[in-house]
Design a protein around this nucleic acid. Structure first.
Lengths: 234, 234
DNA sequence: ATCAAAAAGTGTAATTACTACACTAAGAAA
DNA sequence: TTTCTTAGTGTAGTAATTACACTTTTTGAT
């Protein structure tokens, strides 16, 4: 990629293609979003989604993973294509088509590394986002909508939690994503009734109240049940 | 576009970007797909999805509509972005990223025009598709999955039917898309209970059995209800 | 004219899923 | 030992879903 004065020539005009990622995390209270502060024009100094140009020999998803690794150090994540944004005027420099992905990460794994790069990287609660460059606010809006819809019919919420979690944590996660309170007893009845959670012989330590039991999501079991027509639904 | 020996030069390599469209129709028995027969290599002679290159000053959806108009004569349709396919090796010529759309059209409007162009255009039942060029079989598969999911929670099925239709036709449409039989009484109870259909004072003519009443979908009413939190669900 | 064929049109009872709701248990801190 | 905080638990009422069979209307054939 270096500073060689190389050029690329085509018979037809080609747009630039980038990938951008909307990375969600959850910290037991808020749903959060990972943003980077731009070092270059346009929108220099503004916050924006991590992302960058797709290399010619690289699949789209690989490009998204590479950019996330490079810009934020994040490596283990749930990643899914969101939507492709291609308004002719969405980038002031040239025609840029951006394939957006959304990602779910376990904040516990990545809270530290996030700021480790040279770039300015930070988590923001989705309710308190700064102004974003380009059309990234629209992208975030669509990602939130998608997450909100998908979390109800696929067990992706667990991607935002540590491997072991309490039912209270799980409920708070759903309440944060869905932006609505849930009834504790109904929530537990339903989620336990699916038999996708394994109760561990382990309890919270050093909490100033009754210690909650830990559970973990049994993905294998989910995949078996899904094959036989089971549908996760909350 | 013409045959000018013009070239386009960039500092970084740029992929080509195309749009492809998965166009669905329904003929009162089968869900059908619109395909064109390729006149040029690669995959010359093979059937493929209508599509083509995005122009630099043109939004993605506009490109999809333009290509559909040019290649098949279809103009009024429901169009929605499906997914973006960007495997590095999906086109043998060069790196091509394709933004796929899926479309729903009223076959009654387009049955004739489809074949009017110079290109060879035809409707195929989705159960009897020919081999397709590129990765278009995968695109079709994903489009079918999306249609099947979406038809259950948004009233898009009506896009595949004439403006007026009988409840039998509507049920057959849902059975074709969902690939499962539905109970007649429960289907009617549910769909009429939503109060989105307007019964017309009009009945089938010249049918060799009791004539069915015609209905039409009231989109205005749907949009009002949707604003107040109503969710279509079948 | 009568009959056969084909799809339209209609209701109810049983089952299942969803909702609303309040107290006791456990542990830490004051 | 009292207070605070969250964990953990069941039931009754309501709403939604499912399964299911006969009559009506029209055409075409005998």
């Amino acid at each position: 990629m270096g500073g060689l004065a190389m050029t690329y020539t085509y018979q037809h005009p080609h747009p630039a293609v980038t990938v951008d990622a909307v990375v969600f995390g959850f910290d037991d209270a808020d749903l959060k979003l990972l943003l980077i502060q731009r070092k270059l024009a346009p929108f220099k100094g503004a916050w924006a989604l991590p992302g960058g140009f797709v290399r010619l020999d690289e699949n789209l998803e690989a490009a998204a993973r590479r950019e996330l690794m490079d810009e934020t150090g994040i490596t283990r994540l749930y990643l899914e294509q969101l939507y492709t944004f291609g308004e002719a005027d969405r980038d002031p420099r040239e025609r840029v088509i951006s394939v957006a992905y959304y990602a779910l990460v376990k904040l516990s794994d990545h809270a530290l590394q996030a700021a480790s790069d040279a770039e300015n990287v930070a988590w923001f609660p989705v309710a308190e986002l700064p102004k974003l460059g380009f059309d990234h606010e629209r992208i975030v809006e669509i990602a939130l909508k998608r997450l909100k819809a998908k979390v109800r019919y696929e067990p992706i919420g667990f991607e935002l939690l540590p491997v072991k979690f309490t039912l209270g944590e799980l409920q708070r996660l759903y309440e944060a994503v869905l932006e609505q309170p849930l009834d504790k007893r109904n929530f537990r009845k339903k989620i336990l009734g699916m038999e996708l959670l394994e109760a561990l012989d382990e309890y919270q330590q050093d909490v100033a109240h009754r210690a909650a039991q830990y559970y973990r999501f049994n993905r294998q079991r989910y995949e078996q049940l899904a094959k036989r027509g089971f549908n996760f639904e909350l």
